[in-house]
Design a protein around this nucleic acid. Structure first.
Lengths: 224, 224
DNA sequence: TAGTGTGAATTTCTTCACAGCG
DNA sequence: CGCTGTGAAGAAATTCACACTA
């Protein structure tokens, strides 16, 4: 059998942009557009055209010189690369405010990531129904993942519980984790971990507000 | 007056890590630790020690050779850099599942970003109370920001409404926006925009699951 | 002597610019 | 002719390695 992907490794920065192109292409497809140039796609994705071309070139040569890219075909290729064939289930651990919102958030299922289980440690929550699903106890986590389906674990617990949950997820065989708890979580090699830290984003914005304000003051100083 | 910040510009990547150091240092302070080495801080923050030292060096020379950094003093410096002095208010626009969760999320207020207003376009929601706050109508947005306090706008609307909301926020004088809507939003120069795209994170994880699975198959092939 | 601060080396990412193809 | 695909240049971020000093 010929090697399936002898293509050079796709850079991380590119991987992070593929879903954005995917979304833009889906919109184009839905509005009946069949062909798109790197320039147009760049506009939709909020990046520049050179980057689009370079990014897409890692997937292969799917464009047509002088014309552009065929929307549907390109979409198919990105789908394949992102593993849209296999619907990855999502298990949400921790059903406080954020966890509950995530459980009810349709954006996951809409984009191919159905929520397949809800888990909490609080006996008061276990057994209750959320988004048409029974909340299960964290101690049953092994059996929840026992079916062997590829699954992503979402940690939406308080910070103090996050590492423990991560350890249990890993022990249960989970290889992809998305951490919403505002703390650093470490996982063994081979397990993929990404984090979303809401307050951190605000702090970053705060830095720039602060800096701009300071600059304005300094500029005023040198005026005088 | 002497220039306050003639220091070289702080790289973006460093800015994004300062809040993480901040959190780790806060924990250290709370457990009574007074001094920390770059190595220890690196462990807590989940990065390597060289990076910590380089990052901190952009703030100034606040360490002591042979000893490390004084926790409290370093914390103070990062606080100052992140603009913790001025409590930045947060206005949440869009009170669907996610917006409501964000409104109830204590993590913002706890970290110095009190939610100061809730806004929606749906007349059914306007006037109702959430997290002890009356929901206001998007048309009143100008008056909400009229007091001139520095404020961050959070967009938690459906994708289709996001750009319009961003435009109105900018028109009302908002200079920092955090966008949760799964779509590209553009803002004029001088306005800071960050995005959090939940499903996008899952798609990135999906890519790596997919790739690992493919690699495993290929490895098995070359075995045979 | 332990650990910072930082030039220099390396790697990664972005952008340029243009040859080459449809 | 128009737009892709990509080497090469440039910029940003990371890591190395060690002089220096409290």
């Amino acid at each position: 059998m010929a090697p399936v992907s002898p293509r050079r490794r796709i850079p991380e920065a590119t991987v992070a942009r593929l879903p954005v192109y995917h979304r833009s292409l889906t919109e184009l497809k839905e509005s009946g557009v069949t062909t798109v140039s790197s320039e147009q796609l760049a506009d939709l994705a909020g990046v520049n055209a050179a980057k689009v071309r370079k990014d897409l070139s890692y997937l292969g040569s799917y464009g047509t010189r002088g014309v552009g890219y065929e929307v549907e075909y390109l979409l198919f290729q990105i789908d394949r690369e992102l593993g849209f064939a296999n619907d990855l289930g999502v298990v949400i651990v921790g059903l406080g405010n954020l966890g509950q919102a995530l459980a009810n958030y349709d954006g996951f299922g809409d984009r191919g990531f159905p929520v397949t289980a809800l888990v909490d440690a609080d006996p008061a929550k276990v057994g209750s129904t959320l988004h048409g699903m029974q909340v299960q106890h964290i101690d049953d986590i092994e059996s929840i993942f026992a079916d062997g389906d590829l699954t992503i674990g979402i940690i939406a617990t308080p910070a103090a519980a996050a590492q423990g949950v991560a350890d249990r997820l890993v022990a249960a065989g989970v290889r992809s984790i998305l951490n919403f708890a505002p703390t650093v979580v470490t996982v063994p090699d081979g397990v993929h971990l990404r984090k979303v830290d809401l307050a951190l984003e605000l702090q970053i914005l705060g830095f720039y507000e602060q800096r701009d304000a300071t600059e304005a003051v300094n500029a005023a100083d040198s005026d005088s």
